[in-house]
Design a protein around this nucleic acid. Structure first.
Lengths: 213, 213
DNA sequence: GGCACAACATGCGCGCACGCAATTTTGCGC
DNA sequence: GCGCAAAATTGCGTGCGCGCATGTTGTGCC
């Protein structure tokens, strides 16, 4: 299903893409992100600097992409893989939390580097938008063929909530607004994710029950 | 309430900001957006080019800002202004639709220009994110003092839905050729907005009823 | 196999975004 | 008024994003 044989053309493209993002991350970790120019990444990946920008539209994107990789499709697969008797809300929320649970040791200090540089931090947060499209298709699969905007909107909302969670999570110590209250940047990411996704539960449930009626 | 007297400092800043965005839009309409450099905008507004980037982080942002202006605070005000007996969902949805109903003749051909240039189109769509923060506060005001993430998440979801609507609205209908001009594919924007916001209704209602319990 | 075409890689050039440090303006207490 | 600290403006320099024109490589059709 997900195994497209694909032509030589497509395979080379994917190879170049992964070569670029891995080179970007490796160099950034070795010398620090500020001491890596686009030219260096391109050279390390064996392509011209101009070609780099055919794959990534910013320097930060490549570094972040190496950490995120294909989180989008993994989330989509996780949603699709949940048994049919669990509700849509649980399927989606569990899939998100599961895929954002941080794994490897190597990814951990990559994240450490990312969170310290504002530009990288922003790119990382924005990358959450990438789940929207695959997630929308997975949701559509569970809702049956509704050809309105519901799956897109739900997926976009979930992505937006994740966005909020990541912002909160990476916030150094926000200068609070009018009411300064003890806002602890707080607990684990999974916990935070469940917390921000909770308000969307009614919308997910409603869409699911509307689909099965 | 919203009328901060503000010091001279803040007033001059706002004046500069509006001078910049209005100059940007005017020049873009006069000569076409591709024939306007940031230096021109800065000069027309009477500031240095470097200062321009203290206010707007891209050339397109200023042009788009002139059309959007303070839609964020207008939406927030509209939400806050709805009588207390109408539900949160209706308050929010009506406020959004109302503020996105296109008014002036001048704004109309500005939109025409924006929709044709991809860079401007993207900037315009992304600008919908600006409603998030004011809307969150307005929602928080209606929900009473819940100090969890609910208002933020709901506002972000609404913004995301608007995002989807704008994408759909400005999409040149699939892989269309470059031949068209001003093709607004599907129905009216208000209609589209109500359609994409409908799936979020349960979430808004649930938050409201949880607040009043 | 060869040929026409489409997709991709590359070089060039132009503006642009932004960090940094120096300079001017604003707000405030005296 | 006076002076001083915070904030805003400005110039400069550097690297970057991308449109365009051109060379190169994979793909479908006969």
């Amino acid at each position: 299903m997900t195994t497209e044989p694909a032509g030589l053309r497509e395979r080379k493209k994917q190879a170049t893409r992964r070569a670029l993002r891995e080179a970007a991350l490796r160099l950034a970790l070795e010398r620090g992100p500020d001491n890596v120019r686009v030219d260096d990444i391109a050279e390390a990946a064996g392509v011209s600097p101009r070609t780099y920008n055919n794959y990534f539209s910013s320097r930060e994107q490549a570094i972040v992409a190496a950490v995120i990789a294909d989180r989008g499709s993994r989330v989509a697969a996780a949603v699709a893989g949940r048994p049919a008797n669990v509700g849509l809300a649980d399927a989606v929320i569990d899939a998100i939390v599961e895929q954002y649970a941080e794994p490897g040791e190597d990814a951990r200090n990559a994240l450490l580097m990312i969170t310290t540089r504002p530009a990288l931090r922003d790119a990382f947060i924005d990358a959450a938008t990438a789940v929207e499209r695959p997630l929308a298709e997975a949701i559509a699969g569970r809702l049956g063929e509704t050809h309105d905007h519901t799956p897109r909107v739900l997926a976009a909302s979930v992505a937006a909530a994740v966005h909020v969670a990541l912002e909160r999570w990476l916030q150094p110590a926000g200068a609070s607004l009018v009411t300064d209250e003890l806002v602890v940047s707080s607990g684990s990411l999974p916990e935070l994710l469940r917390s921000v996704l909770a308000p969307l539960r009614p919308a997910l449930d409603a869409a699911a029950s509307a689909g099965t009626e």
